[in-house]
Amino acid sequence: MVRKFFFQTKLSKALLAACLLAFLAWWSPAFLGKSIASVTQVFLFPFERIFSYVAFESRETLRFFSSIGELKTRNEELVRENLDLRSEAALLKEVRRENEMLRRDFDLDLRNQYQLVSAEVVALGGVARGQSLIINRGSGAHMEVGMPVIVGKGLLVGRISEVFFGSSRVDLLSSPESMVAVTTPDGSAKGIVRGEHGLGLLFDMVPRTDVFKRGDTIVTSGLGGEFPRGLLVGTLQDPEYTSDKLFQRAPVISPVKYPDIRFVSVIRESKP
């Protein structure tokens, strides 16, 4: 029987492969990851779009058939909600007109003047898909790291963390690195919203003296200049004190489920 040396065995090759991956994970070279991602994204991009379209449509069809029994009740709920929102919108339209007139009178710039670039989500990544999105706009569409990403007219979902040629990675608010200065619309509570390992959002570092309750909405405060003021982040849940009793905090529920996001808008320029 021919005796094998250790380096000829499968175990040695497995260990070598594991060591290579461990070294790359430890070294974490940004330039290498970015180059690989950029090159492969260029080739995979057309297929990504087709695959994501097929996958989203299939999921929507499946969801439609599985929720057919709930459609009647859901429809009634939405009709009621629509009526409430319509009356609220009419009221806000009046307030907005008044606000714009006052801002003009006081020579202040109008708020929320964004230049938006729409993009399609082609891939989702991270823990339970709550950490990052890949969108189909990259350096070719003048995307830059740090640009805020919203859904609809102003629901903040994250910011661009890496730009490739034809695509960009968006770190969602629920990713562990995410931290955004927020406030309640009336300014009664200020703090930060940070991600909880892709599992949710937390309104944190709120001083004890600040007042907020379950059901309050929070918006970006504009502090730090990274995000424009007034972007909706989510709705607060039951508040609690931190273990050292110095601050308050509360879980935040975003109005959208991040894995369901298919189209987003990137704020390229905004007036504070």
């Binding site: 497995a14 994970a25 970015k34 994204q41 890949i134 963390s161």
Partner: peptide
Amino acid sequence: LLTAIIICDSILFGSVQFGSLYFVGVSY
């Protein structure tokens, strides 16, 4: 396998993750 792992991790996370060692273990 290593090529697929490195590409997937680079696109999704920007670099290879320690969790990816698992696939080599599974394969072995």
